[in-house]
Design a protein around this nucleic acid. Structure first.
Lengths: 210, 210
DNA sequence: TGCCTTTCGCTACGGGTCGTAGCGTAATGG
DNA sequence: CCATTACGCTACGACCCGTAGCGAAAGGCA
């Protein structure tokens, strides 16, 4: 929501219109659905939002940053209720993440901004803090719960803990993204069942053999 | 290499310059390294290649198709020598794939064209046939070898076989891509060892419990 | 050799997007 | 009331796109 060029606690002057913020982000998502990433233009978003083009540039430096903010809020919906078992938790979060990737806004925008981020460090940081970290927290929660249930051993070495967390996250998120966007095949119950079986079995084997 | 609008066996007239083909693809890769995907322009590629801009458009309809062809040849290097064990094979192919993703050409181009392909079916098909299938074959080879060694059981159900192959491919390729481009952390020996341990253990568990 | 066909380099063009500057106006706080 | 900031609007140069039109080059074929 907050832009990079946010006036640090500007006490005086006319305040930024929060309605304009919301309208712009909403218009950006609508444009992503209708046009996709490549054909989305700043002028078109401004027109849809009923806002002058200069107002967009006062908040976001370029198209990339705008789209990240517009899509990031969709990731707020992600949650991980305790379903009683590691396997059930994995299946739930995978299906939820897949549903998010099926939406045309995220489908066309996520890969594009990640591609741009390979040459734009501030953009990468913005993606990390507003999207990636939000997903990764689910992994940490799931692992912690599994340990409380006794399904996974409690690792004492902090280095191993962090490495394993990162591995699990990259495997789950990467597999889902690759399945949905590269292989372009559905993330259905059957596939999710196979993935979770692979993960649960693999985590057990890894924990058993240090 | 061959463009979409290739003249089917044109017997008469001046033939296409193969030197121009090579120069254009080479210039495209150079432009990707220097400028990245978003700042790469057709006119710049033409200038680098010492070729008229119209010559590019005679071969490729747009930037996307050109970049796919320019990057696809890099995937020809991928190979999978028999290293004696499933785990060694996995580690080798993962490191090889990661090295490919570390190159600036592929790093900036792969995600971009995949993002574009979500709204461009012909482009998706081109990516699939010239890049994805080339990687997937390595997975099939590795699985077949592991079965010959007795490391994995020989599954009789063709539906299960295809589903498992697809799962393994999405997990491996997805995890590496996610690690390298989203998490932006190195695919080093330690990480690869953890991933292969997870996979080998998981595949064993999946095979044991149908 | 002469003819036909296709590709080549080159120039030029209309159309579109970018990102900014400048202006007058609107909305706050002191 | 005044300083300050945001807003809408217009206009602008710069850039890139993708195509058309031209004459010249390089092949096949009789």
């Amino acid at each position: 929501m907050c832009s990079r060029t946010s006036p640090r606690t500007s006490r005086t002057g006319r305040p930024r219109s929060t309605e304009a913020d919301a309208a712009i982000l909403e218009a950006t998502r609508a444009a992503l659905v209708e046009l996709g990433w490549s054909k989305l233009t700043m002028g078109d978003v401004a027109t849809r939002a009923g806002v002058a083009k200069t107002t967009l540039y006062r908040r976001w430096a370029n198209k990339n940053e705008l789209v990240v903010d517009a899509v990031a809020v969709l990731f707020d919906e992600l949650e991980l209720p305790d379903l009683g078992s590691l396997r059930a938790d994995i299946e739930y979060v995978v299906l939820q993440f897949a549903a998010l990737l099926e939406r045309p806004e995220t489908k066309t925008a996520l890969m594009a901004v990640v591609a741009e981020s390979t040459r734009d460090e501030p953009l990468r940081e913005r993606i990390r803090s507003s999207i990636v970290e939000r997903q990764k927290r689910l992994v940490l929660d799931g692992r912690r719960r599994a340990q409380l249930r006794g399904e996974l051993p409690v690792d004492r070495d902090p280095v191993t803990v962090e490495a394993t967390d990162g591995l699990i996250f990259d495997v789950i998120a990467g597999a889902v993204v690759h399945r949905a966007l590269v292989s372009a095949e559905p993330v259905d119950g059957d596939w999710v069942a196979r993935l979770s079986a692979l993960l649960v079995g693999g985590l057990g084997a890894v924990a058993a053999a240090p």
